[in-house]
């Protein structure tokens, strides 16, 4: 039913929620845990910020570490009290009636405003029946709302574990098109694939033809697929690119298994040295100049 220790997780989130709300709010919320009818869940979910406020959560270090350990890749960074209250409510839904459980959450998605969508999508890795949320996650990637995309893309372990290659590639392409910070996407390098690399290279050529800038992080996803064409691109980056382009080309060549690419990098000893000294890596590269 769950792909992690959901029972322990629920206990900890409940404890965390309780310590962040007033006695009165806690009384209101904990009553909803017992309510069997969906309408009570619906209105409690919508009303949450009125009851809890929207301040960032207060949490001690031990609890933080324990929660994040239960679900590797999941983070509480940036969570507010209304969001944790919403998660807490969802974790108390009875997952044994699979159909009802999925329908209840799906209906919340259908009527959600932005903050609700953020709460729902960032909770995706914690829902029961994880394999059933694949379409929902892919649908979220189609959103044009920045915060919603970030809730799915940034430090969310769901997409990396469950999206198939096609949906994963859409997520990455969308991240480039919407100017997201690629360093925050979990699993970005692990899930690099030939199909994605080829689409990204086409995209890069399109940008070059239109005289537009290219996010240098694009090249990191090509490093395992260096062929003659990509080698030409790397040469172009080294020869005509900005400092950031040259750094990206160096990192790409360094990570690749291609002897030709590695030889090319040797012509730029100062960049090679920076990588070997750990002064240059993808995290030190920012997308915009």
């Amino acid at each position: 039913m769950f792909d992690y220790d959901a029972e322990r997780f629920r206990v900890l989130i409940t404890e965390l929620t309780r310590s962040n709300v007033t006695e009165e709010t806690w009384h209101w919320l904990s009553e909803k845990f017992l309510a069997p009818e969906t309408s009570a869940v619906n209105s409690a979910f919508a009303m949450m910020p009125r009851k809890t406020g929207k301040l960032p959560i207060a949490i001690n270090h031990e609890l933080w570490v324990e929660i994040e350990k239960l679900k590797p890749g999941f983070t509480l960074e940036g969570w507010t009290i209304d969001r944790i209250g919403r998660l807490c409510l969802l974790l108390h839904l009875d997952p044994t009636d699979k159909e009802k459980y999925v329908k209840t959450i799906e209906n919340l998605f259908l009527a959600a405003e932005v903050n609700e969508l953020v709460a729902l999508y960032s909770s995706l890795p914690l829902f029961a029946w994880p394999e059933l949320w694949l379409m929902r996650c892919a649908e979220g990637v189609r959103s044009n709302i920045g915060l919603v995309l970030e809730a799915i893309m940034y430090k969310n372990p769901y997409p990396i574990s469950y999206l198939d290659e096609k949906a994963w590639n859409q997520l990455i392409l969308k991240a480039f098109f919407t100017g997201k910070d690629l360093n925050k996407i979990s699993g970005i390098d692990e899930r690099a694939n030939a199909e994605l690399a080829s689409t990204l290279v086409d995209f890069a050529h399109e940008r070059w033809a239109a005289n537009r800038k290219i996010n240098p992080h694009l090249w990191r996803l090509t490093s395992k697929f260096i062929d003659d064409d990509l080698l030409t691109d790397l040469k172009r980056l080294f020869g005509e690119g900005s400092l950031r382009d040259r750094q990206a080309a160096a990192l790409t060549a360094y990570q690749s298994d291609s002897v030709l690419a590695k030889n090319l990098l040797k012509s730029y000893p100062e960049l090679l040295k920076a990588i070997e000294n750990k002064e240059l890596n993808w995290s030190s590269l920012t997308p915009e100049e």
Binding site: S39, N42, S43, A46, R50, A111, E113, E116
Partner: peptide, 9 residues
Amino acid sequence: LPLFIYKEG
């Protein structure tokens, strides 16, 4: 309507 009237904003 009850699903929407309690939303923020």
